[in-house]
Design a protein around this nucleic acid. Structure first.
Lengths: 176, 176
DNA sequence: GACGATACGGAACGCACGCCCCGGTTGGCA
DNA sequence: TGCCAACCGGGGCGTGCGTTCCGTATCGTC
């Protein structure tokens, strides 16, 4: 690969990292190109599609987060809650975290698998509601992560979800 | 108003009701027109903009829901939970419920006010976390309602949120 | 220093969608 | 029944965006 090509590739990745993080996947690709100081054609020389660029930007972060699911914890519930907290903290700062679930099937599957493992152990230990599935959790988290960028307090949102996941002794007792 | 005009107006409203409910606000306006058996121009004769049509379709349902916030309940928490349950039940069947919060500032304000009143009373009674704001609740509900159409179990999602809203005696106890 | 391959930039294409315009049609009143 | 105003259908415009194409510039080697 030519030297200027490698340099431009990095410039594109830098611009994409910044703009995807602040504006999410919706940012126009031309804006990324402009920010990188290149033309749209150059972006497409290095990445076949906008989605591929997005994945290149997010997959290492997501992979690191999935890897952190293996870290030891005091209890299975703690392991699950720590993971969800890590997701929330990341999403509170970088907007592309929630889009990753929607845009890239691979990243979604990876998160689904990681969450599924943690969830199952936490449920077996009895600390988390038995009726929640991994899909429920992925989708709920996606909604919550998106909500963080619309004026809500991220910490409060997270605590509500974590609290709601815990097995409740006193039923919610609401009318249907 | 001419008879055929009134008839077409109803046909447009019927088609919009159905398609907004199943596909949300994202459904192309031409599709609504086609389903109604009219041209796009006819739609715009009766409604100045797509958003106006959407509001015409949803505002009565939202208004009815807001009115139901006044219904008596056993306790302030029950009143709040019953309202949230009603929102969730509606959104589980009609996809435009969650879009209403995004698309129409008026509907959003109405829901915000209704939720804010119920929330405050429930918090004063001590049954709901003190650190939640009305904005938090609106945004969280929006995220949750959208999640219902992506493979999650609506009832489980609702119970998690309701459970998480209740004041917790045992802290979530998760690592940060 | 010249030449070929590689890469660049940005104009242009295709598509989707909200919205408007106009020639033709239809309804209802005299 | 005839006339005019109201209304209709659908083709078309403007815009935004992902993607592609191609003439030109640049890199790296001989």
């Amino acid at each position: 690969m030519r030297a200027d090509a490698a340099r431009n590739r990095e410039k594109v990745l830098d611009a994409a990292r910044e703009l995807f993080a602040t504006q999410g996947f919706e940012v126009p690709l031309d804006e990324i190109a402009t920010r990188a100081g290149v033309g749209p054609g150059t972006v497409y020389r290095h990445f076949p599609t906008k989605q591929a660029l997005f994945q290149a930007v997010t997959e290492t972060r997501v992979a690191a987060m999935i890897a952190s699911a293996e870290e030891p914890a005091d209890s299975p519930e703690q392991a699950l809650f720590a993971f969800l907290t890590k997701m929330a903290d990341e999403a509170a700062v970088k907007r592309d975290m929630s889009d990753a679930i929607t845009v890239s099937p691979e990243l979604r599957k990876g998160l689904h698998a990681a969450l599924g493992g943690l969830l199952q152990k936490a449920q077996e230990a009895g600390g988390v509601r038995q009726d929640v599935t991994a899909t429920d959790l992925v989708v709920l988290m996606k909604g919550m992560l998106q909500s963080m960028h619309e004026g809500a307090n991220p910490a409060v949102l997270l605590e509500i979800v974590l609290g709601g996941l815990q097995s409740h002794v006193s039923s919610p007792d609401h009318a249907r």
